[in-house]
Amino acid sequence: MKLGYYPGCSLHSTAAEYNMATEAVFDALDLELAELPEWNCCGATAGHSTDRFLALALPLRNLVIAEAEQQKELVLPCAACYNLVKAADHYVREGTPEANDANEELKNIMGSSYNGTVHVTHPLEVIMRKEIVGKVKPQVKNPLKGLKVVPYYGCLLTRPTYVAFDDVEQPQAMDQLMNLAGADVKRWSYKTDCCGGSLTVPRTDVVYEITKKLVTEAQRAGADAIVTACPLCQMTLETRQKEIKNPIPVFFFTELLGISFGHPQAKQWMKKHIIDPIPLLTSLHLL
């Protein structure tokens, strides 16, 4: 199956390992990712906090391209991009006046507008589909035995309701996948708490505080690592653990799937982490 792919800026820079692992896992599951040509950044918090038109037009432009490329589905691994592009898609389908206006403007600029025909999705949703998740177990040649993890969904993957593909308060997709990969999934109450990511540069102090709470709670739940499905969640949790005595690694869910599949490149992904996960993985004979 061929799917449109919008990596987002982070997967080309700060989260290069997420990009590699996601491509590797999709490949192993017979899914082909075709990168959207000439895609643009969705504007993130800076867009929706400051300008109503940009907040719609920037994500919509990507959907116009996806439609022109005849992509039925567009996969976005960054929760922030996923959220904004999904919301723009939602508003066009609802026909809100602001969305119609932004669409009209794009028609003038790009020559065509977005007709609401693309299914905007996230790698987690794709892998959890019945016909695909069935292929996961047979691939697990290196079960993550002894790896104690808590899944962290953060905010933008599960909220608001029109972007959610899982339960908004109690999502399960990553829990189930990590179980399939053989990890020891711990229960905790913070899986959908926000990490404050968008304040990470201008108000680092606030983010240190939140990260401290999240990581402490993960450790209290008995976890040795956190699993995420977003480059921003991962970066915030990984780089803001200053006040934690024994910092713990933060993985992308496709990295852990890739390790459980015994992917030969997995060690290269691990070398890109700021908090080195290799000691933990080798102590469990997983790498």
Partner: peptide, 20 residues
């Protein structure tokens, strides 16, 4: 993880972002 130069991804559609 931090490319020193920005990505220049827009080719055929150059200028669209500036217009937006």
């Amino acid at each position: 993880k931090m490319p020193f130069l920005p990505h220049n991804a827009l080719k055929r559609r150059k200028g669209e972002i500036k217009k937006i």
